[in-house]
Design a protein around this nucleic acid. Sequence first.
DNA 1: GGGCAGCGCAC
DNA 2: GTGCGC
DNA 3: GCCC
Length: 773
Amino acid sequence: MLDDALREKTAYFEQQELSDKDGGDMSLGDSYLNIGPVLADSEAMPPPKLVRKPSSFLGPTPKELQMSFGARGVKQPSSFRSESSKLERSATAPGTTTTKSFPATGLRQRPTSSPQAKVPERLKRTTSLPDMKVKNELPFYKRVGVIPRELKKSNAKPADNIKLEPEGRQVLRDKVVYFYPNNDTSMPRRMRIHKIIQLGAAWVRAWREDITHIMVDESYHTYSQVLRHLNKAGLPCREQRRIFLVKFDPYVPQCIQFGTLLDPSAGRFLVKGAPISNRTAVDTDHASQSSESQGSLQVKPSLRQLTAHDSQTHSTPTENSPQNVNSDPSHPPGSSQEIVKDSFIGDEPNESTDAYNDDLSQAIQETKAIAHLPLDEEEEEGPTSSIDHDSDSGTDDEIPEPPSKRLKLSTSTPAPPKGKSKGKGKAPSSTFQCMNPSGAASSANPNSRTIEILDQMCKYYDQMQDQWRTFAYRKAISTLRKQDTKITTAKEAAVLPFIGQRLADKIEEIVLTDRLRRLDSTRDDPTDQVLRLFLGVYGAGLAQASKWIQAGYRTLDDLTTKAKLTSSQKIGIEHYSDFAQRIPRTEVEAHGTTIKSALRTLDPTFSATIMGSYRRGAKDSGDIDIIITKPSASIAQLHSLVFKTLIPSLTSSGFLKCKLATSSRTDDGTKWHGVSCLPDSTTWRRLDLLLVPEEEMGAALLYFTGNDIFNRSIRLLASKKGMRLNQRGLYRDVVRGRNREKLNEGTLVEGRSERKIFEILGVPWREPGERIC
DNA sequence: GGGCAGCGCAC
DNA sequence: GTGCGC
DNA sequence: GCCC
């Protein structure tokens, strides 16, 4: 930020005895999917074939829609559902009534882009019933093989009641599998053994001639190791029978994924050092000789994914920006402003800080308990936030903060976030080792793969605007990040906080198969894709998107030409791709500078502060939030200047493009939501201006700094203490009715100082960069 | 089965 | 009052 | 999704 602004603000804070820091927004929904491919797909989407009953769609409320989301899956006790879940899934999206017609009519089709995909696949599979045979005769794995121990403890008894997959999904039916190493002492391997049994195979302990597959469970095992172990010179390969040596992963996971027995001789399944098969290594299911008819479906491994697109943030060079009135455009994320304020804060006697340390820790516990905040002083692993690109809902990638700085030293945490951005790679840890002084010990999180996949689920639900599930996943992921051992079983997972049975099952599935079918299934679902496409339109939510689908619209063009749109939605569609892109930090800054410059010429005593993820040090943001304030100014004054002068001025200059929602009332209108665009750019950005009177600055800073998880938890804490916290202040003596509706406003306790709000709530101070939960 | 924060604007 | 975004 |  600019020196001037800085000075101004510093003075302001000092004058007002504010000890706050700037904050950021909590952009909840600023990360939408990458729409590139979606758009493409949508173009290719076939005309609506949904059989719909017009009368039936009475317009479920979002709540109902979400409930329907919830309904799916609840009834899926098995951790291994696939096709069926798919059906349910697609059913959820738009009006529930239409859903049934989907599978029944068989009208659902893939986009023409993948003609080879056979439609009937899932339909077919859904018809397969859980195998009843088991009851009548000894299951194959007991007849032929050895029964592994149960998954519970290390010395559990034999698992004589393994629930097999429905026959139709037993892709390893009648196979005889030998593992290398071939015991069930290690839990992961025991799970794999269970898995192949569920898939219809048997596990044998000793070598025998009818073995069909040898599976190694680690990719570092080599062909020669296995031969040595078997004491053989080569794998037997008679005319009719051949023993296949494969890596369990990815062989079995992929067989599951494609619902068929894949060719084990395909290169990707081969064990290191194994001779390349002379047969063509096609990855189809030709190898399947099994009696069942699964061979029919050969699904093409079309792993197209929505996420592929990758918004390449085309950043607009800062230099180009008009302003520059300000001096240091290049200040580090930490922002000098913060530093200054920190020093101000630092003046507080340490004792006071220490004094409330006990209370703080108390509060931490409490807050944690209530809100699952990773308030852990010790090792909240920083920001880990970036499991992979694209942050989750709204929380933009934050630049982490060394864990070393604990809240306790509320004194002054040096300017935090280093401008260093974490690579978008998958292994988040690598980037942040610096944060773990412990060095070597701090290797990658053992659960990183699990987290990665759960995070994808989380993003999916975010796109679906299923806020509660998104919330739950984020909490669970947070928990998982704290584990220093790998969670491999559902049982293990279920005891952890915020991980229930259903997530635990998913975790086990991930560990076992390295994927979540639930995720795979949804990716290719055309209805899901359209739904997500529409949900990406600014101003459209679940209800609207579902109505559009219900009306038969499938592309953005459909909406433009046929649908009745609100003004926001029109803009949202026109600039769909703009709004879907992340805004590079430098550009956020440029927008902020433009505002500040204009403001300064109008009245130098006004100040503008960029909030949101920017304030938390994020390398890019979903939108731009700016708080405008002025010492001793009333809302009316703020409103007058901003709405009558600033906005018209910036609009005529071409910087502001349009408004989406603005306060109407002249007296206490406090917000302007619209769109801005730098002069040399064509990418429109979401810009929010917030007018805040000084007496509410603390609460506003807190609120708009986020992140959202942090906000929710601290609000929850407030309400638990009989108080109420919103962006205007902290109130006490709030009386609520039986339905929690508040019966009175309560009494204002504090609004001016962010820090005091923390204190009153008994929450240890956290710098903006530390409010990443 | 309800809560998971609570608010203001557009329609 | 509902839908939506913050 | 989880928790109470």
